[in-house]
Design a binder for these strands. Structure first.
Lengths: 327, 327
DNA sequence: ACCAAAAAGGAAAGCGCTTTACCATTTAGG
DNA sequence: CCTAAATGGTAAAGCGCTTTCCTTTTTGGT
């Protein structure tokens, strides 16, 4: 390995000077700078980040921690896009992303590992409960608690848009397939649905709110089966996640009914395939890219200026496609 | 920060001894071990990985490099699952994954960065051309060249299975929508298609092979439009990627035709949504998890034993669903 | 009770880099 | 022409840990 010493020897300057040109210090002559740079070029030198980190106590790495309870990781259609947005922004500032092993079970272990790695910041996605990673600057996506340092979509507003849209289309019997009873975003969406229904003076029989399991396709299926079996069947349903919506649509088709002719369906997320299915799914789009970017901005602020930005709520958008129709 | 020195002082032993218990050396008494461990517990000590890496020249990090030319990263439905499989295996051995910035343009820069970070190994996904990252042990997914150290699906066999299946169903006019003309996997799939067609004595008019653009949904659409406009329309088409297949199916529906009644479609990849679309897509499944795992095994071998495992070709599987029917 | 061998523990060098404190030249200012 | 301030450069300490090479202690065999 070629080190700063080799460069020093080759260029005829001290290692201090070499280090200075490496770090753009001003008090080094053009001549020295050139010599050093030439030597670096000739010897094909690459600085060693561990040594640098050790000396500066700055790793230029951001740790990424996943939703452990969902069992999904990088391959999750929503999370992965958020991370993508996060990464695009954060790499402008020369940070790399470190995905730490998630099979560490205990929160404490994960935290220890992050500390071990000396990451400059942490981005936590959908990790349940209150897991202050304490000393390390952290930003949370979809965190259950309304503490500073979180970023998430305006879930209530999303449900509101959905319900109102269906209302405009003439629907009065609108059901809801909820993502879960414990996950923050799912709870918020359910609230938004209920609030808006009430505001519009629409009745919400208990059977109209049914739980899709962890936002899953299967959960969507089962929920829709329940809904179809109802005496007083809804004419439209606000589904809290696109995957569940896919499942719901499938069930409707299997029952010999049509979307949107017989039942209108509106999803949530706008995952990539939403526009490619049949019928193209009307849904509430989460701005995944922006969520990621905002999280990045927030985290960088925390790292650089120690400022604790307030929680950021990202606007959602109704994307009209073809899974909803006039009643 | 609490260091090994603090532990030494607290426990009354030397830093050497502390280090020894940390690294499970045998020549340390039970008594000493306990003292040290207690001190660690009390002081909440976490070893510093930079220091350790500096001393041992081992980082316990694997670098991940992406398909730059596709512009997609973590959010790619195929890649992300491969990485997931890779990660699951590699973290059993206590490695973490470092996603390095990909906007570095030049290959050289990426390599330098990896070297700078001191990763123990590199996993390259779909990076075009011959990019030997030289000195660092590397494993490639879907690499264009048939060098040791690559892992990919048996693309030809996949196409073969597809064509043969359609043949069994009575199809004779079978077209192909290729992924691209330059990407390795796309080329292989096209070859597999042609070979099998010939073997079955089926004619392949030039117009029967059409290029979907970079495996994209749009590319699939356009290709299918071309196919539909043909005088002698195919009754089935082997599509080199599921996304393109989605596009193709959409076009068929828009033309007032039905899948599979009028045209049978068979995809490639078996991405998560393939089973959820309408009709559920018959496709060639790539074992993404296994690809990832094999890559991990290979890389670990390279790192630990310096063995250069031969390129591994992963079997594919025909998944029969409902987008193909008897002619 | 004695000695060789094994076990336990420690001193110190070194991994590659940054940074502080300091020295030696120049250059500018009066 | 002399002093003060830049400017250019260096030595050395230190970041936290591993590892080699000793030294000291313990063990057990006779």
């Amino acid at each position: 390995m070629t080190t700063i010493y080799d460069i020093a020897k080759r260029s005829g300057y001290s290692i201090t000077t070499v280090s200075k040109v490496l770090n753009n210090y001003t008090n080094v002559s053009q001549k020295a700078k050139k010599s050093v740079l030439d030597a670096i070029e000739e010897l094909g030198y690459t600085p060693n980040s561990s040594a640098r980190t050790l000396a500066t106590n700055k790793s230029w790495m951001i740790g990424v921690v996943f939703a452990e309870h969902l069992g999904v990781g990088i391959a999750h259609p929503f999370f992965s896009e958020v991370i993508e947005g996060f990464k695009k922004h954060i790499e402008l500032y020369n940070y790399d992303l470190l995905f730490v092993s998630r099979d560490m079970g205990l929160k404490q272990e994960t935290y220890k590992h992050l500390k071990h790695r000396g990451v400059d910041g942490v981005m936590v996605i959908q990790s349940e409960g209150d897991d202050s990673v304490s000393s390390i600057p952290t930003v949370y996506i979809d965190r259950p608690l309304e503490k500073p340092g979180s970023v998430y979509s305006d879930n209530r507003q999303g449900s509101k848009l959905a319900v109102e849209y269906l209302f405009e289309l003439g629907h009065r019997k609108i059901a809801h397939i909820a993502g879960d009873t414990k996950i923050f975003s799912a709870i918020e969406r359910a609230k938004g649905y209920k609030e808006t229904m009430e505001k519009l003076n629409l009745s919400v029989p208990d059977e109209y709110i049914v739980n899709g399991n962890f936002f899953s396709y299967e959960g969507g299926r089962e929920a829709m089966i329940r809904l179809l079996s109802l005496q007083d069947r809804p004419t439209a349903v606000v589904v809290a996640g696109d995957h569940m919506a896919l499942g719901a649509i499938k069930v409707i088709k299997e029952a010999g009914l049509k979307v949107p002719d017989d039942i209108s369906i509106i999803g949530f997320d706008d995952i990539a395939v939403a526009q490619h299915i049949d019928p193209p799914l009307t849904t509430i789009r989460q701005d995944k890219d922006l969520i990621g970017r905002q999280a990045a901005i927030m985290l960088l602020n925390k790292i650089d200026h120690k400022t604790d930005d307030p929680t950021k709520i990202i606007p959602v958008q109704l994307i009209k496609r073809e899974s909803c129709s006039r009643v």
